[in-house]
Simulated assay, not measured.
Amino acid sequence: MLIGPYVNGTAVVIGGLVGAFLGTRLPERIRSALPLTFGLCSMGLGIMLIVKVKYMPAVVLAMVIGAMLGELFFVEKGIGKAAGYTRGIVDKFLPPAQGLTHQEFMDKFVAIVVLFCASGTGIFGAMHEGMTGDPSILYIKTVLDLFTSAIFATILGYAVVVIAIPQLAIQLALATLAAFILPMTTPDMMLDFSAAGGLIMLATGLRICGIKLFPVANMLPGLFLIMPFSFLWATYIA
């Protein structure tokens, strides 16, 4: 029985509720400084994953084509519309977030959707539990997500809680499919997959810190391309 995805999702809900309740009760300097710290941590984790890459040309090719597909199919725009719809529903029943324009809300909300749902730790942790039954990696992510969701909820309000739904769905799907996916992978393919996730986490950190607003959601299709690209590169080129 899978445990990790449910524990991780529960942490996001609890952290989001607590953070949204505290809201402006936390000093402004804390609400401003901590997201920058989480953005920096996201960049650090991303770099750590990137340096372990096996076939960087395959990763670059997958990410470039993936980003093109994301732009063509308006992935980020779709997530933004869903975020706006979610915010509208939540604000009808719970106190709305204060002090953010609609665009500022969208920029931050899309970034943390990617951070929670598409991080290398979450994806690999879900696949690891599905294959071995060991939820320890997702437990580590749970601790991080508890505090991260609380801090971002002080800015974005109760809408952060809703992120637990797609996060749980993605992790359950990956864990369920892991028994079929992992036997077809090699250690090098996993390293390249993690490196692609690291690039997205690096871009997410830069976006959270306001350094560069990368369209991180449009980069997600690259995650579906990297394993076959890595295999083909290792087989026919390397």
Rank of each mutant, 00 (worst) to 15 (best):
D134I: 06
A203L: 08
F109Q: 01
N218Y: 12
G88C: 02
N8E: 14
D145M: 08
M184W: 02
V64D: 14
T148A: 14
G125S: 07
A118W: 09
G133L: 03
A159E: 12
F193L: 15
L36N: 12
S230T: 06
S194P: 07
L213P: 10
T142K: 03
V60I: 15
C41A: 15
T154P: 00
F224M: 12
P57E: 06
L202P: 00
P96Y: 06
D188L: 10
Q167H: 10
L191S: 11
E28L: 13
E129P: 00
T185P: 00
N218G: 13
I123S: 06
I140W: 11
M190E: 10
D134V: 09
I155A: 15
I47L: 14
L213N: 15
V114C: 00
G84P: 08
G15N: 05
G99Y: 03
N218V: 12
M127Y: 03
K212A: 07
T121M: 05
V161D: 05
L22E: 10
M189H: 05
T176V: 03
L225S: 08
K92C: 10
L94C: 00
I163W: 04
G222R: 08
S42Q: 11
R29I: 13
C209K: 12
L40G: 14
Y158K: 01
L199D: 02
E28F: 09
A179T: 14
P27A: 15
L100I: 10
G198P: 04
L182K: 05
E129F: 04
R87H: 01
A238Y: 14
I170M: 15
P221T: 04
L45Y: 15
K92P: 03
G99H: 12
P183G: 09
L2M: 11
I112H: 00
M1K: 11
M48V: 07
V75H: 07
L36D: 06
A11N: 07
Y158G: 08
T186P: 08
N218S: 15
T204R: 07
E104C: 10
F180E: 14
A97Q: 08
G210R: 13
D91P: 05
L144T: 11
D134W: 13
Y158H: 08
F38E: 04
G122E: 01
P95E: 10
F231I: 02
L72V: 07
N8F: 13
I137H: 09
P5K: 01
M219F: 05
P57V: 06
A11Y: 01
L144V: 13
L49A: 14
T186V: 13
H128T: 04
G84V: 06
P57M: 10
L36A: 13
L49D: 12
T132R: 11
I47E: 05
G9N: 06
V143D: 09
L220D: 11
L49Y: 12
F74D: 15
A83V: 07
L232C: 09
I151Y: 04
P95L: 14
V143A: 15
I3T: 14
V18P: 04
L45E: 09
I208G: 00
A238S: 15
L206A: 15
L225M: 12
P221M: 00
Q167N: 11
G46M: 08
L72M: 10
I50A: 00
G130S: 10
G46T: 07
L223G: 03
I237Q: 02
A159F: 03
I170G: 12
G80H: 04
V216G: 06
A58F: 04
V162S: 09
D91R: 07
G84R: 13
F93D: 04
M131V: 03
P183A: 15
D107V: 07
G4Q: 13
